[in-house]
């Protein structure tokens, strides 16, 4: 029994158009033009309890629209959605009481209030029993190291501190499902590690289902086994990271550190991607070219200090998807 069920979800928006310039503004007094944008064009997927899903796609692909529909804020044009057995937009209050949503750029805390007062207020809004609230609060304060921040008004917190407080706030009512929209945006390295670690523990130890929307591919690589790629309102891929890589390309990278600064490097079977001082990055297809053979040839023909093989960064994979002209493959992409 899937916890989240999405079937053939369709959503279009109608936007009014503004013509620039003074003449356009005067014309706008008389008549307004409208433009139709299809945000979602029939996507379908299901999520079981305890899954950690990476939900990626270029800006405007339909990610936040999906999250809004799943949380009951938005009503779709057509399609079927069930979250915890209920339709989210007809049972908004019941659905919302069991999920948590974090938007990376907007806080849900009260700007002028100390953090602890925001927590208390949220506990009352969500009708959290006192004992459960105290337990959750203390645990979250400990896990996210919030004790020194509790008395500070939210407007005085740094971005990283605010994000940690937001994460805690969203979990005070023990939600079963968590939607995280860009949780690591603007955070420094330590902050990102802390947030990722926290999310992983939440998912592994508490079984909280997480849908993570992010542009930071390190987040995806570290946290998600399953990935859905949305492109122009359609499902491009629903599978594992490995399948994602395989779908776009089967290439591998060979990073070579040469002995000398400007030593030449070339090979008939490999393509030079970039060159920085001693380090050269080569691209090759392991299906056509044996990695061992290629390495042997490179070492034989050049003065090599060090080398290693790796997969292309997810960023590049995804960028290629975003820029690709291929039509979204809904059913055949799912393995």
């Amino acid at each position: 029994m899937p916890q989240i069920l999405v079937e053939s979800l369709v959503k279009t928006f109608h936007l009014a158009e503004r013509v620039p310039g003074t003449w356009g503004a005067l014309a706008g007094l008389a008549r307004r033009r409208h433009r139709t944008v299809t945000a979602l064009n029939g996507i379908s997927f299901t999520l079981r309890e305890g899954e950690l899903l990476g939900y990626i796609g270029p800006n405007g692909a339909g990610k936040s629209t999906t999250v809004k529909i799943l949380s009951g804020i938005l009503v779709p044009d057509s399609g079927r959605v069930e979250v915890l057995g209920k339709v989210p937009w007809t049972h908004r209050i019941e659905t919302v009481a069991q999920i948590g949503v974090v938007f990376g750029q907007r806080t849900q805390l009260w700007w002028d209030l100390p953090v602890i007062e925001s927590f208390d207020l949220l506990a009352d809004i969500y009708r959290v029993p006192a004992a459960l609230y105290r337990r959750n609060r203390d645990e979250l304060v400990g896990l996210l190291d919030l004790a020194p921040l509790l008395d500070t008004p939210v407007r005085q917190l740094s971005l990283g501190q605010r994000m940690r407080c937001d994460l805690a706030a969203t979990l005070l009512h023990s939600p079963k499902i968590l939607y995280l929209d860009e949780p690591t945006i603007g955070l420094d390295a330590v902050g990102k590690l802390a947030v990722r670690d926290f999310i992983r523990r939440l998912n592994r130890e508490r079984g909280v289902t997480v849908i993570l929307t992010t542009h930071d591919m390190d987040d995806i690589e570290v946290l998600c086994e399953r990935v859905i790629v949305i492109h122009e309102g359609g499902l491009f891929l629903d599978g594992t990271l490995k399948q994602l890589r395989g779908r776009v390309s089967s290439e591998r990278r060979l990073i070579v550190d040469l002995a000398r600064e400007n030593g030449p490097i070339n090979d008939p079977d490999a393509e030079l991607v970039s060159r920085q001082g001693r380090r050269a990055t080569l691209r090759f297809d392991p299906a056509r070219v044996s990695p061992a053979g290629l390495i042997a040839r490179i070492v034989a023909n050049h003065e090599v200090a060090d080398l290693f093989v790796e997969n292309p960064p997810i960023e590049e994979i995804v960028a290629r998807i975003y820029g690709s002209a291929c039509a979204p493959l809904s059913r055949s992409a799912r393995q």
């Binding site: 503004r18 003074t22 503004a25 005067l26 706008g28 007094l29």
Partner: peptide, 12 residues
């Protein structure tokens, strides 16, 4: 002056 004028026109 002209910027103010255009801004006002936008809000018909």
């Amino acid at each position: 002056l002209s910027a103010r004028f255009r801004m006002l026109l936008q809000y018909r």
